[in-house]
């Protein structure tokens, strides 16, 4: 196939990749923070805290990421008068949506720590917060990594939604180039391959991280195929 891509168009693709990566990193940070906050809140002893965290998870898991994005981009400015910079609006919508999926992962992993560990924490008269920080989380976090890794790939795929809002990410660059060249096979193939490579790199990094964290808690890594946990997205299975 004769390539019609000029250096200028490749530059446009690179700009798109940069926006996608920025958005991915920012929303991953927000989603992780929200996931831990909501996931830990669901183990709180006050019912109202548990209820609010549960409400947040159900609402954000129940609705579509794209609708959240419409809400943040179009409804928030008119209804509340808050106009966010596109990058932050995208981060907010994606971070809150995927944070809700992550909260379920965090809750599940904490609940999976053996009861004896909790009892030991109580026997040592640790405060609830110390128990969480020193006993439960160090054991739960390595277990969260494989589902988080899958969620991260889902988040990467989710970042493409911002192109609908007119943000210049990789998918948006793809559309611009299609318009410029009047030819779509080549550019969309490149765009898909770039997303695939990014997803591949993400899974690699996460697998390294899992190994690292497990070694620190003195456990060995299962050498199973990573796909077996791929259904976090359909979180209700947990």
């Amino acid at each position: 196939m004769n390539s019609s891509m000029t250096p200028g168009l490749w530059e446009l693709v690179l700009d798109g990749v940069w926006v996608t990566v920025q958005l991915l990193v920012l929303s991953a940070v927000l989603a992780t923070a929200v996931a831990f906050a909501a996931g830990i809140a669901r183990t709180h002893r006050l019912w109202i805290v548990r209820f609010l965290a549960g409400l947040y998870t159900e609402v954000f898991r129940g609705t579509s990421a794209l609708i959240m994005m419409f809400w943040v981009f179009f409804v928030m400015p008119t209804a509340f008068g808050w106009q966010l910079v596109p990058l932050w609006a995208g981060t907010l919508a994606l971070g809150l949506t995927y944070g809700a999926y992550g909260a379920e992962v965090v809750r599940g992993a904490i609940a999976a720590v053996p009861q004896a560990q909790r009892d030991a924490g109580i026997a040592l008269s640790l405060t609830p917060w110390q128990r969480m920080r020193l006993v439960l989380l160090p054991q739960a976090v390595p277990e969260m990594i494989p589902p988080f890794s899958n969620l991260l790939v889902e988040l990467l795929k989710g970042t493409a939604l911002v192109s609908i809002m007119g943000m210049g990410d990789l998918a948006f660059s793809g559309n611009l180039i299609r318009l410029a060249l009047q030819e779509s096979t080549e550019i969309y193939t490149y765009v898909l391959v770039i997303y695939f490579v990014l997803a591949f790199l993400l899974t690699r990094v996460m697998r390294g991280l899992e190994k690292n964290l497990k070694v620190r808690t003195g456990r060995t890594v299962r050498t199973g195929s990573p796909e077996t946990t791929a259904d976090v997205k359909a979180g209700a299975a947990a």
Binding site: V153, L156, K157, G158, T159, A160, L161, S163, I164, A171, G174, N175, R178, E183, S184, T185, Y188, T189, V191, L192, Y195, F196, A199, F200, A230
Partner: peptide, 18 residues
């Protein structure tokens, strides 16, 4: 599985007619 559905839809919508 590892690429965005959105871009796949664009691919189907613009490439198949070509």
């Amino acid at each position: 599985r590892n690429t965005p559905l959105l871009v796949q839809l664009f691919f189907l919508f613009y490439v198949l007619p070509e």
